[in-house]
Amino acid sequence: MKTTPEHNERISKMTFASVYPHYVAKVEKNGRTIDELHQVIEWLTGFDKDKLDALINEKVTFQTFFQKANIHPNAHLIKGVICGYRIEELENPLTKQVRFLDKLVDELAKGRKMEKILREG
Results as ranks from 00 to 15, higher is better:
T15P: 06
L118A: 13
I11D: 04
K59Y: 13
R10H: 15
R119E: 07
C83H: 12
D53T: 02
V40W: 02
C83Y: 10
K49T: 11
V81Q: 10
I117D: 02
K51A: 11
G121P: 11
E88Q: 15
L52P: 02
L118E: 10
L77N: 10
F66P: 08
T95C: 14
R32E: 00
V19N: 03
E107C: 10
V24W: 00
E58Y: 08
P93K: 02
D50R: 13
D35W: 04
R10W: 13
A69M: 00
T15I: 07
D35H: 08
K26G: 03
V27T: 03
P73M: 14
E42L: 10
R86V: 10
K59C: 09
E115S: 14
V60P: 09
Y85E: 10
P93R: 04
V105H: 04
T3A: 06
K116V: 09
E107L: 15
K59M: 10
Q39I: 02
P5N: 12
K13D: 05
E6H: 06
K103Q: 15
G121H: 13
G121W: 14
K113M: 08
P73G: 15
A69L: 01
L44R: 02
H7G: 11
E36N: 03
E9V: 09
L44C: 07
K96M: 10
Y85T: 07
K2C: 12
K13W: 00
Q67K: 13
L55G: 05
F100H: 08
T95I: 08
P93V: 00
K29N: 15
C83V: 08
E36K: 03
K13M: 06
F100L: 04
V27N: 00
T15E: 11
E91D: 13
